[in-house]
């Protein structure tokens, strides 16, 4: 009994329940994806799902199409988001914290509400729903997620580097290209992580933005799970998981990728 109390009073042991919690609710579920992915409907080990995936041209095409849409979306978000983050973090151009909050706030509004509002806007402007509205809607949804990490990095950036470059005679363009841009790269990488992968895996957004005419990879996963094709759905989830894992190797800055910077 005494031993038990001394165990409780060591603060490091307070993490034990969380460890068990993480094992049950994070590790075990991910492991189950792996198990289900290599099982057939009878519950035996099989490569049936892999074969189905390789034989079905449609799924692979959807995956490639989703990656394409995600690339375009990410690119537009960088082009629009980088200057925004730059202006917001530059004390000469913007001093208002409220302005920063306004740019980041949309990410706290329910994703379906935002998307429906966008669809309503397209309807109001008589724009037919299709690939263009899909890309526009995605940019609407994900732009704040690109702005935040770049802003966080630029804001923390040691201004003396820039002053040093100016003192050494660099013109503003050289300062930006040789100093500011390279130093802000971790933010851009985090931004890419927060935009690229979610674009591939969302399902409802694409459905609403195109009247269900265009499917993204996430839609196919959801349809399979909903229709009771758990094993095939698990395999597709596994593919998604591998994609996420691979892209995460390039991103080691966890601090900026957290939404926590907002509050």
């Amino acid at each position: 009994m005494k031993k038990f109390f001394s165990f409780l009073s060591r603060r490091s042991s307070w993490s034990v329940p969380y460890f068990i919690f993480l094992l049950i609710f994070i590790v075990l579920p991910l492991f189950l994806i792996l198990v289900y992915a290599f099982r057939n409907q009878e519950g035996q080990f099989s490569l049936e799902n892999v074969k189905t995936f390789l034989a079905e041209k449609e799924t692979i095409n959807t995956l490639l199409y989703s990656i394409g849409i995600a690339l375009i979306n990410t690119l537009i978000c960088i082009i629009l988001g980088y200057p925004t983050a730059y202006i917001l973090s530059n004390s000469k151009l913007n001093q208002s914290k409220v302005m920063v909050a306004l740019f980041l706030m949309p990410m706290l509004i329910n994703v379906l509400m935002r998307t429906l509002a966008t669809v309503a806007l397209f309807g109001f402007l008589n724009v037919p729903l299709g690939q263009t509205t899909l890309i526009f809607g995605m940019v609407y949804n994900y732009l704040p997620f690109m702005i935040l990490p770049i802003y966080v990095v630029l804001n923390k950036l040691d201004k003396s580097y820039i002053e040093a470059a100016q003192d050494l005679g660099a013109n503003p363009i050289t300062v930006f290209v040789k100093v500011t841009m390279p130093l802000s790269m971790p933010g851009v990488v985090s931004g890419i992580m927060m935009v690229f992968m979610p674009t591939i895996s969302t399902f409802a957004i694409a459905e609403l933005l195109t009247m269900n005419n265009i499917k993204l990879f996430g839609t196919i996963i959801q349809e399979n799970i909903n229709n009771g094709m758990w094993n095939y759905g698990a395999l597709l989830s596994l593919i998604m998981l591998i994609l996420i894992f691979v892209t995460n190797i390039f991103n080691d800055d966890k601090e900026t990728s957290s939404v926590g910077g907002l509050i």
Binding site: P29, L30, L32, I221, I244
Partner: peptide, 17 residues
Amino acid sequence: ISILNADIITGVSLFLL
């Protein structure tokens, strides 16, 4: 893990659990 993971994967994996 769950912060970096896609929501859909978290959803599907918990569903399977």
